[in-house]
Design a protein around this nucleic acid. Sequence first.
DNA 1: TTGTAGGCGTTATCAG
DNA 2: CTGATAACGCCTACAA
Lengths: 340, 340
Amino acid sequence: MTTVPPPRRVAPTLEAVAAEAGVSRSTVSRVVNGSNQVSPDVEAAVHAAIERLHYIPNRAARSLANNQTMAIALVIPEDTTRFFGDPYFAAIVQGITRGLDESDYVLTLQVAQSHPREKTMRYLAGGNVDGAFVVSHHSGDLFPGSLASSMPVVYGGRPLRPDDPPAYFVDVDNVAAAERGTQYLINKGRTRIATVAGPPDMPAGLDRAAGWSAAMAAAGLSTERIAYGDFSLASGARAMRELLDRFPDLDSVFVASDLMATGAIQVLLERGLSVPGDVAVMGFDDSPAATSGTIQLTTVHQPSEAVGAEMARMMLALLRGEPVEHRRIMETHIVERDSA
Amino acid sequence: MTTVPPPRRVAPTLEAVAAEAGVSRSTVSRVVNGSNQVSPDVEAAVHAAIERLHYIPNRAARSLANNQTMAIALVIPEDTTRFFGDPYFAAIVQGITRGLDESDYVLTLQVAQSHPREKTMRYLAGGNVDGAFVVSHHSGDLFPGSLASSMPVVYGGRPLRPDDPPAYFVDVDNVAAAERGTQYLINKGRTRIATVAGPPDMPAGLDRAAGWSAAMAAAGLSTERIAYGDFSLASGARAMRELLDRFPDLDSVFVASDLMATGAIQVLLERGLSVPGDVAVMGFDDSPAATSGTIQLTTVHQPSEAVGAEMARMMLALLRGEPVEHRRIMETHIVERDSA
DNA sequence: TTGTAGGCGTTATCAG
DNA sequence: CTGATAACGCCTACAA
């Protein structure tokens, strides 16, 4: 049982440093902000004083004075558990924080669960951040363009809604990547290639299904063997069962995520089918899930953490007022392992 | 290619609202802060003005004036990917955000990767937050007591270091919970019960192993069948293999996390052993991982999200200056499913 | 019950 | 190159 001490801090201020160094506040402010208009000796003296007093600038005062919060929101429009259940997002967040490390910006977490999203909007609209990252399974269905007009917004993954006004985002070319993944299966001589697709209301789900479809069509193969999951392991298993029941003749499957692929493989083995012998399976992501199962996944690698880092870079540039291209597409490639 | 508009906001201020409502700033401030010293009609008028102008208080100004940041740090002393790879943490974060929802506090994410943790410390020491949540696999190995003396700190999970000064934390009784889980196996008639323990440098790993050990000893059973993992799925598989190699006679295994249990089961099945027939397996967590595999896990349930919510409640109380007990222990119970 | 006046710690504009 | 001197938007005695 203890009560916290009264809040008022006793941190040294600019003023104190100025006194200590025998100069004016303005001068201290200048050296703190790295102005080059200060004579070397004065600068040294100030630095010494700062050191001695352990001075750290007060963020609130700074914000108030120059109207910048030095904070960026990380908006997650859904349940954290679900969100982070997908290693892809964890990696993106990792990349974002890494990308912001060098800067003075701080990340504030905004979990906008369905209902109280109003609080989030008020927070953002209240000018409490200088920009926002939006990353989600259903990116774009939630954030009015009004937001983007008041501050830089960078999306992780292509927003679902039509591009008006054009949004900033970084993503991979899911269509092309899926096409290539499917082509790999075709090259291996597979012909009855099924797919476990992601939800049709998410860009990644949509695009990967489209890529599979395109590759199949181009090869003159049937595109009827399709089932949907929601990117979770369990849904992958479910979809695989459905596929097996409806198309017992399938000889391979292109799965839209490693997590789902893991579930699919479990079902395959459970039914006594060999992988890749009877059924080859191709994943997507190259997340930790790809190598944590019994069978190492052959999969389409996408640089998730790099996507996050790129988002950070984009945001920083936007914040500096530099011109920035709206979309940044990262490279993917196939990682050959044991499942196909 | 677009450049962002100049940053300066044009948000209405207290002043503007005052003018609009025909009162003074103080009065507006009072109604905004819910003072009861305002006559109903004036209050109504002010509210109307606020509504009309879409006024939102400026956080920086407020912070500056009353020396509170209304922000709480969420400190994660490690790789996000690894951190969120464990559903337990995702759930805790979920609980924290939920618990903070009603309040005006905001969460700032501090990923203190090994090296630049200094930045984090400076940030915290700089008075940029009013408190800090610390949640990690290795909680406690990193944060000097100095931090706790300058602001409320609430840990998720018992800190590893001796309790001086006593830290605030919420956790479950891992020893007792593990004991009960092991006892369940004993009650089922198992006798050669192995364990896949967590890392010995984490409280949860330590305590659960101790619980298993205690239950075994109390029943006069051998405590030699032990292997260690790091709470990841892959490590669970690895440990299970080791166990099988060293103790081919084992008839069950108490695993310190569902994720590891999932890996263990994969290995068991792979080796042609039936679960729970040949080997019963008991998990720990009751996370989504418990029900996402082929075999539904019997496991020790711990209320992860509630832990987070409780952390938030504790923090809020601390921030209000209310007396708060240092440790809050949440209940666990066994969930019977198919693996044991 | 309401208004006045300072101050919170910085930055920015202008003289010197 | 350096130092006054206003803001920045809000809170809070103190007065009225």
